[in-house]
Design a protein around this nucleic acid. Structure first.
Lengths: 146, 146
DNA sequence: CTGCTTGCAAATAGTTTGCACGTTC
DNA sequence: GAACGTGCAAACTATTTGCAAGCAG
């Protein structure tokens, strides 16, 4: 993973410095997406701006992708993790579910046919609530409403 | 519209100051959602922080809602406008389409049945691209990818 | 040893908050 | 006139950028 990526980058005129290497390693160890801030805490010798820059190039070459689960920070993960998933996030309890993108295939076809628009799902979580969570119990405007 | 809202607020222990009134009027005159910043430019005597505060209370009482079309500023509209629409935004040309939420009814049923999750669509635009727009032509990481 | 990478500080965008003053009811 | 609303300045969160020094190839 690290090695292939390293080669990819070199043949692209790029180098593999400490920040990029450690970011890849940290992401490899994760099962759930992480924010840049969390990565920075986990990698105290790497400056957060370098984390952002590393994530940016890794995303550019397709090794990393990011998703937005809430209004807060973007969350990053290796692109090969949870391939083609669409997150659902509960406004009430905050739980997130990674649903297979295939669920949306029919909808995509309809939208493509009726609107001439090709959905590119997965990037933003879809808000909603668990059946057992009472949406009326949202005290302050819930995170997704901000 | 203004009057009913005013009554709603008074019976709620709230008052109708200049900011709230002008924000409602400005939104009434719009057909498309606006950012707080744009409202502030349109209402030079109202401070942008008051615009945010006004929008917040109006949203709390259900008069206003906001959507996220891009990674940038949130956009606000009267809650009764474009009822139950789901925006689609093209990553390439930026065009947005307001699709009827009913399009998603089937998907909602499936997700509710299979995942015990009730979709609450419409709040975030769905990214994708127009059939005629070439997604490969996105030079920099497109706005929705940030 | 060339120039891509990184650290640091500062800038940015969008939004929120504390406080004192103004206005509504 | 008491309490809520508003203006202003400052804080804040998430992220980006300029610059000089560091390190990879």
């Amino acid at each position: 993973m690290l090695d292939e990526t390293a080669d990819r980058m070199r043949s692209d005129g790029r180098r593999l410095g400490a920040a990029r290497r450690q970011v890849i390693e940290a992401l490899s160890a994760r099962t759930a997406p992480v924010s840049a801030e969390e990565l920075a805490e986990e990698l105290p010798t790497i400056h957060v701006s370098s984390i952002y820059r590393s994530l940016a190039v890794l995303e550019e070459i397709g090794v990393v992708r990011h998703v937005h689960l809430t209004h807060g920070a973007a969350l990053y993960e290796l692109a090969d993790e949870t391939p083609d998933s669409q997150y659902l996030v509960c406004d009430v309890c905050g739980r997130d579910i990674a649903a297979p993108a295939a669920l949306f295939d029919k909808l995509r076809q309809v939208i493509e046919k009726d609107y001439g628009f090709v959905l590119q799902g997965g990037h933003f979580a879809l808000p909603g609530h668990c059946i057992d969570c009472d949406p009326a119990s949202i005290s302050r405007p819930h995170p997704h409403a901000r």
